[in-house]
C-alpha cells in the first residue's frame, strides 16, 4: 500500500478543508503531491504539525447561547446503530432519510463558517483484501466433489489441499470441508509439525503463545 499517501501528518499539514468528522480527517487525499513524503527536520515537522485550532475554539467568548460540539477523534460507539441496521419501523430511519446517500455513521455537525465536507466515496478507498477473494461462485458439482475426494484419498502427497483448490477453482476451506486426508497422512504431518516446534527456542515459543493470546483477547474485545 502506498505509505507515502496515507501519512496523517501529511494530510494534516496539507489540508485546506476543515475536518468535520473523526475518521475522515485521516483519509487518503488524491490531491496531495505524490513526491512529498515527510519533513526532513524536526523544526519543519513541528511547523507542519502546528495546525490551527478548530473554528469552535477560536472565539473564546461565544455571544450566542449554543453548545460547542467538537468531539475528539475516537472510536465510534457500538451503541450508535448504523443507518443500515435500523429496522424499518424505527423513527430514526425516517429522520435520517436525507442522509441515506451519505456516510451514515459519521456524526454530522456544523459550526458557523465551516463548510460541509463532501461524503467519502467508499469505492475510492483501498480494500484490505481483494474483494473477489471472498466471492462465492457456487460452481462445484457433485461429480467435482467426488473426484476431489477420490484424488485426495488416492495420493494425499501429490494432491494437496492447495493443489486441489487450484485445480477446481475453489478455496482451500472448501477442499477441507469436502475431504479429510487419511489418518496416517495426518499423523505424519502432525509429527513433522511437532518436530519443527520442538526446535523452537524459548523466545519463539513465547512469541507464538503471545500471538495466540492476542487473538483470544481480540475476540473478547479486550484489545
Amino acid at each position: 500500500m502506498e505509505a507515502t499517501l496515507t501519512r496523517p501528518a501529511l494530510s494534516c499539514c496539507c489540508r485546506t478543508i476543515p475536518s468535520s468528522s473523526s475518521t475522515s480527517r485521516l483519509l487518503v487525499r488524491p490531491s496531495v503531491a505524490p513526491g512529498l513524503r515527510q519533513q526532513s527536520t524536526k523544526s519543519r515537522t513541528k511547523r507542519a504539525l502546528n495546525i490551527p485550532k478548530h473554528e469552535s475554539f477560536l472565539n473564546p467568548r461565544p455571544t450566542t447561547n449554543h453548545i460547542v460540539f467538537n468531539p475528539p477523534s475516537s472510536e465510534a460507539s457500538v451503541y450508535h446503530t448504523p443507518f443500515k441496521f435500523l429496522p424499518k419501523t424505527d423513527p430514526r430511519r425516517r429522520a435520517q432519510l436525507s442522509n441515506l446517500f451519505g456516510s451514515s455513521t459519521t456524526i454530522q455537525y456544523s459550526t458557523p463558517g465551516a463548510s460541509a465536507e463532501p461524503a467519502v466515496n467508499p469505492d475510492e478507498l483501498p480494500a484490505v483484501f481483494p474483494p473477489e477473494l471472498g466471492t462465492k461462485k457456487y460452481h462445484m458439482t457433485k461429480e467435482d466433489v467426488e473426484e476431489m475426494r477420490r484424488l485426495r484419498l488416492e495420493d494425499p502427497n501429490k494432491h494437496t489441499v492447495t493443489s486441489l483448490s487450484k485445480q477446481f477453482g475453489c478455496t482451500p476451506w472448501f477442499v477441507m470441508m469436502c475431504v479429510r486426508s487419511p489418518r496416517e497422512h495426518r499423523d505424519k504431518h502432525k509429527a513433522a509439525e511437532a518436530a519443527v516446534k520442538a526446535r523452537w527456542g524459548p523466545k519463539r515459543t513465547a512469541a507464538r503463545e503471545e500471538r495466540a493470546r492476542r487473538w483470544a483477547m481480540l475476540f473478547r474485545g479486550e484489545l
Partner: peptide, 16 residues
C-alpha cells in the same frame, strides 16, 4: 439482503 461487506482501509500510519 445487504450488499456483501467489504473491508476498506480508512487510514494508516507507520506501515513499515
Amino acid at each position: 439482503d445487504f450488499e456483501k461487506p467489504i473491508a476498506r482501509l480508512l487510514s494508516e500510519t507507520g506501515r513499515l
